[in-house]
């Protein structure tokens, strides 16, 4: 499977980032480990650097000290992908030629050229995560695996979560469930809280906005709710104006999750243009330029529907 680099052999994985003191990725204060690789291509993705499973080159022009003082990358690139322009001395990257070989990275002293993603062992990750353990005890937090799609690197994710449990650390994952069931079977036994997306209701609309229809996702969700009754599930919808910020989607999602008592909440994540600048670092096009975050009024209206369904008077938990 070309998309799952860490599914065979020793449990090493490609880690994008370890973010400390997260407060929105599960209960309490958490350390979020972003695993690289995703199986969807949501047009609103706020983590474009997490999409490709392999490490990929990024470039911050602001840090480049220019060809007059440096210029090693120009000689190192075998693909002619780094070049100069007339207007200044800083180099540019031609992303259509770049193959992400990474040869330019070690010869860039100011680290203007760098790689998103690095291979790590389970212990390397957990040793860093465990540094925050005192905060977990105080807040009821723990480790959260995010992505990309953290279940894509199923063996690595399972080893990380099992290792966290062994160290007494609470576990959570953020997932969209667009993976084979065999991945779910490996990962979920080691998870305490499952934060999962329900992005769109209709299969064809799901395909249009994320790249695949949601048939398998819904099958996986139902199966997971039933196969893991002791796990806590929290459904979430990234709320994208004009795409899924309608009552119909919210009510359809509630209808889908409510029969399952282990789905304890449904949160709305208002679309923000957080990831936009990162597309620039990767030479990618952000396709949602003309979308604005949802209005407070529409957010409040939709949240009220959820509060009512969960028997809350309003202002309930919104993960």
């Amino acid at each position: 499977m070309a998309n799952s680099p860490a599914n065979t052999g020793a449990p090493k994985g490609i880690v994008l980032n370890i973010q400390h003191f997260s407060t929105h990725d599960g209960p309490g204060m958490r350390t979020t480990v972003f695993l690289k690789g995703c199986t969807l291509r949501c047009k609103w993705c706020s983590n474009p650097e997490s999409i490709q499973p392999k490490p990929e080159l990024a470039y911050n022009l602001r840090k480049c000290i220019g060809k007059d003082q440096c210029g090693f990358c120009l000689k190192e690139c075998p693909e002619f992908a780094i070049f100069n322009v007339d207007s200044d001395t800083k180099v540019r990257v031609n992303w259509d030629l770049c193959t992400n070989c990474g040869k330019c990275v070690p010869v860039c002293p100011p680290q203007a050229l760098y790689l998103f993603g690095q291979e790590m062992t389970v212990d390397q990750v957990l040793d860093e995560v465990e540094q925050d353990s005192s905060f977990y005890r105080e807040s009821g937090g723990g480790i959260t695996l995010s992505g990309g799609e953290c279940q894509l690197q199923a063996d690595f994710a399972a080893a990380l979560l099992a290792g966290a449990h062994q160290r007494g650390i609470n576990t959570a994952i953020e997932t969209a469930f667009n993976v084979p069931w065999s991945h779910v079977e490996k990962v979920l036994p080691h998870v305490d809280t499952v934060l999962h997306d329900i992005k769109l209701t209709l299969p064809e609309r799901h395909r249009k906005w994320t790249g695949v229809d949601n048939t398998r996702i819904r099958e996986n969700l139902k199966r997971a709710y039933e196969a893991f009754p002791d796990k806590t599930f929290i459904a979430r919808t990234p709320l994208i104006p004009g795409v899924n910020d309608d009552e119909e989607h919210i009510r359809a999602t509630l209808e889908f999750i409510k029969p399952h008592k282990n789905v304890v909440d449904y949160g709305l994540l208002p679309y923000m243009r957080f990831g936009e600048s990162k597309y620039g670092f990767l030479g990618k096009v952000y396709e949602m330029q003309d979308f604005e975050p949802p209005s407070p009024e529409s957010l409040a209206r939709l949240r009220a529907i959820i509060d009512e369904a969960f028997g809350r008077s309003g202002g309930g938990t919104q993960t």
């Binding site: 470039y59 911050n60 022009l61 602001r62 322009v85 007339d86 207007s87 200044d88 540019r92 990257v93 031609n94 992303w95 259509d96 936009e276 600048s277 990162k278 597309y279 620039g280 670092f281 030479g283 990618k284 096009v285 952000y286 330029q289 003309d290």
Partner: peptide, 21 residues
Amino acid sequence: SLKASLSPGATGEGGSHVIER
């Protein structure tokens, strides 16, 4: 305007898109 890379949305100062919209 200094973005002279050939790929869309490439490497402007601060990494932002050259043409925001």
